[in-house]
Design a protein around this nucleic acid. Structure first.
Lengths: 201, 201
DNA sequence: TACTTTAAATTACACTGGTTAGTGTAAGAT
DNA sequence: ATCTTACACTAACCAGTGTAATTTAAAGTA
């Protein structure tokens, strides 16, 4: 028996891409499999050959969201840079996620999926908990180095994320990107606020 | 000509209640008008007599959400109470919104509606902007009274909301209510954080 | 108070027109 | 031999309408 297998990943990708675009534009429920096929320049049958039902498509979109959301580099402590600069750079890095309109759209779709499929949200929470240790570690190192005074790094990290997300994550999800000027102003302010409590001087 | 008009508000309410419950349980798209009628112990025709299409139901649900979200009393400056106590009480008041599971469900539905119908989100943003002046006013009064040092009350208010929502609004929307112990711990922490920058001593 | 009248509100139910997830198949492409 | 396509098809669901019958309660009557 000779097995012949062909590489069909390109087709699969184009279907998934088309599906994500359509989900972003119309939402999951209102996107039909026929539309996805049409946009992927494919036949509906091929769509079903790759993803045997519609749920699998949103699952894959979700996985891609997770990958994108956390692949951006995490914060690493650098004794040679000021605390303000390190926090500011970190915020800038994370900000890019909601500046790209496709990524933003994918987040919106995913957020709705979380709300209607709580089991997806659980997976995301587990994943993000495992990832967000980066900031906690940074806070500990900065404290050991005498540059910060943080008793409870987990709590401090949560405060930082709240301050960040309250301007740079949730508002863009709902109303669209933040204007750069206002963004810079708020970033400076919340870093000041953070350091007023956790700074060492 | 004698006009007879009957009070049909009870029926209307029961339909809207049933609709909201169903939206919470199944989401807007997946809730059929037949189901709403059944749950309201009414006929589909009566549903349509009160709400001539499905959109009007989500609109009304949204209006009810707005009313619920902002009817809870706003913060008012009281020179006789400590700053910590006033902020803590304010946070407690706002917290009750996400402790009630129906209100939480309604918020989820509304959030999804915002994401898929941006024009609804606009109305909500306008409404909330007009309401959230309460905290700004409080910050100004506390500053005039020498109890706080706030240069930019709008920015400070935004920081406060970010800190609050980062624990007491968004996480409950996604994963469910916050455990009381953790909530108290974080509330104390974020008030400390806020006062480290804006407190007058 | 009790009763009748009457228009408004509600119901049951059938029906239309449209959409959509998913399947089967045979022919064609790589 | 495997992947892909075109296309026809099913079975279900659903928003919204039309209508005639039935129930309800406000207003008029005794």
């Amino acid at each position: 028996m000779v097995r012949k297998k062909r590489d069909t990943s390109a087709k699969r990708e184009s279907i998934l891409d088309a599906a994500i675009d359509a989900f972003i534009e119309f939402g999951f429920e209102k996107t039909s499999m026929d539309l996805i096929a049409e946009r992927a320049n494919s036949s509906k049958r091929t769509v079903y050959n790759h993803f045997s039902n519609k749920e699998l498509l949103i699952e894959e979109a979700f996985n891609r969201f997770l990958r994108g959301a956390f692949e951006s580099k995490n914060i690493e402590y650098d004794p040679g840079k000021s605390i303000e600069e390190q926090l500011s750079d970190f915020a800038d890095t994370k900000m890019t996620l909601t500046e790209d309109s496709r990524q933003l759209g994918l987040m919106r779709v995913t957020l709705c999926a979380f709300i209607t499929h709580p089991q997806m949200a659980e997976r995301a929470v587990l994943f993000s908990d495992s990832q967000e240790d980066g900031l906690v570690k940074w806070l500990k190192e900065a404290t050991l180095d005498g540059r910060l005074k943080v008793d409870n790094p987990e709590l401090a990290a949560e405060s930082f994320w709240s301050l960040f997300a309250g301007t740079f994550f949730w508002p863009p999800i709902i109303r669209g990107p933040v204007e750069r000027e206002k963004g810079e102003e708020f970033k400076a302010e919340f870093i000041q606020l953070f350091l007023a409590r956790y700074g060492s001087e």
